[in-house]
Nucleic acid binder design. Structure first.
Lengths: 342, 342
DNA sequence: CTGAAAGCGCTAACAC
DNA sequence: GTGTTAGCGCTTTCAG
């Protein structure tokens, strides 16, 4: 059948078979209205018989469009991020885009390398949540300069003017803190994340603002800054509890550390929430099922991914030139770890 | 500078600038030893100055290689699967491959559509865990026929002869069941998954075999088959507990249902593990932190992803023609939910 | 409605 | 060491 073994049929093979031109085949396959229904049908029949599959690579090169959206996250294997990816994929697939994915492992060097590789691969757009370690943003400015759509989610870069999908971290943190105050906790500590990231910066400030509004003096010694891994939780709470005047509640920058803190205190025999209140951030799946269940802020990862994909696709296809920052609502989920006035 | 606005510099631009040929530029940029160091340096300097970035699309078309690995999972947003993806990405990136990802949502139709799209995009290899609903495998046989490397992980298709990365589900289930027997439980139930999937089929058989080895009569009424979502757990355990002779332990086909069962029984005041033993499968992150912590089988997702990527890359690059099934070890993690003889 | 021809950007014989 | 040439598979003017 196939003269040249091990080679895919192309539009030329179809054309030869029917003794017509390749352009006609191309048009027919793309449903160009200028081709008669009759020839279209003939062409499609042969295409089917030959097992023809369009070579998207060739088409992409010709069209200078890859139909691909790049997404870069710190770590794929984290519930929030995998939810975002899932949301992006959901929308992108329906719109006919591929999603290529990479993780920075929160390392600036890897992030730079990934972003450059995505550029070389001519992704039509890039969705990214920056690495904790990233402080120079030239690699991303490249995308802006080349007019390739760029969407930040969650961790955005303030100095780059582009689309952003975020949640109101300040407001979320404010509500967490207000909630703890309403529950009657008096000395509220905070586990903060790296302050170069707006997300953690805003959370800290939301916390401070809530204290201020309630006329509670802000005590710097109650704030501990770390990278918020599960290993960071225990040393932080140990240090806080060793204070002459230790806290009776804590707002943790994420659920991971909230869990570490909860387990540490529980094992020490401290009653939660009676003696100590805990709230996290992000609503990891485990927060709902541990005992006591951990109060937290819901960040709608899947929806953020969907929005990011919708936004980037509209930019890719319309060349819309105005940038928007979409702030998705968070939700304070009150669970047992902080609810002592049921 | 750039005559034609909004267009990327190509090797031809570099060539023109230096009045040499494009092939020399191409060779220099690819570090071909036939080019003198001096010209290489000149070329690289100009490339830098022009902000040249290779167009991988063009290179891929020419080389008939996309440097891309496709990965298809039922759901991105599930810890086991996102761990596998993370492992694949880890290895693939280091080897210079891109990873494109899609989720089937456990739907056969979507899986078929994804796989065809990946083929059209000329992925160099495909890593897949099939959807629960998939029963016809022509779309995958296509990859085999075209000699495109195909690796199954976790959920493999027995009738397709190709590389597979799995865990020994039979053995894992056997050990779970043996453990429950050793703990003195007498009537051990099983929540099974869809039996068309080898993983769940093997788990059920491992369970049956352990009973047999211990001279315990297999009671069909103690086995409940479902899709093992969190919603499936409660009706299943309700039905089992309503039996004239209800179970005193259960081996759940995954951790999700184990959790549902645990919460249901706990809320009913049944003491775990004293009155009832529970074991899950997969070691989801929450299993360790709930109370009581749930015993389970560790499936090394990240390592499976790494192995799958290594295997597929070696196939892509060596055209190695022998297929292997790599069975990664599982680990029985005994926690409070089944450990009554501490 | 269909065909001829050029070209997307890169690579690889094959020359010299 | 370097240049010439052809072509990967597709799309798209332009012509008829």
């Amino acid at each position: 059948m196939n003269r040249n073994k091990n080679t895919e049929p192309t539009i030329h093979d179809i054309a030869r078979e029917l003794e017509i031109s390749a352009s006609t085949v191309s048009r027919a396959l793309n449903n160009n209205p200028r081709i008669s229904l009759k020839t279209k049908e003939k062409i499609k029949a042969v295409a089917d018989r030959l097992g023809y599959r369009p070579n998207t690579l060739a088409s992409n090169l010709r069209n200078k469009k890859s139909n691909t959206i790049g997404i870069v996250v710190p770590l794929i294997n984290r519930h929030f991020f995998s939810s975002v990816i899932s949301g992006v994929e959901d929308i992108a697939f329906k719109a006919g885009y591929n999603v290529v994915i990479s993780q920075s492992n929160d390392l600036a060097a890897k992030e730079i390398s990934i972003v450059q590789s995505m550029f070389s691969n001519r992704v039509d757009g890039l969705i990214i949540s920056i690495a904790m370690q990233t402080s120079n943003f030239d690699h991303l400015k490249l995308f802006r300069k080349k007019q390739i759509p760029l969407v930040f989610f969650d961790r955005a870069v303030p100095e780059i003017d582009t689309d952003k999908i975020v949640v109101d971290d300040f407001d979320g943190a404010f509500r967490v803190t207000q909630h703890l105050i309403d529950q009657g906790y008096k000395r509220i500590a905070h586990l903060a994340g790296p302050q170069n990231l707006t997300t953690y910066f805003d959370r800290k400030n939301g916390y401070i603002e809530a204290l201020r509004k309630n006329n509670i003096a802000f005590d710097e010694s109650l704030v501990n800054v770390s990278t918020l891994t599960s290993d960071d939780g225990v040393p932080a709470i140990e240090k806080l509890m060793a204070l002459p005047n230790p806290p009776d509640a804590i707002f943790c920058g994420n659920d991971t550390t909230a869990l570490s803190v909860m387990i540490y205190l529980r094992d020490k025999g401290i009653r939660i929430p009676e003696d100590f209140g805990i709230v996290g951030f992000s609503n990891e799946p485990f927060s709902k099922v541990v005992s006591p269940a951990i109060s937290t802020i819901l960040q709608p990862g899947f929806a953020m991914g969907q929005k990011a994909a919708e936004l980037i696709i509209s930019k890719i296809e319309n060349k819309d030139r105005t940038y928007q920052t979409i702030t998705l609502p968070t939700e304070l989920i009150i669970r047992d770890s902080s609810n002592r006035k049921k």
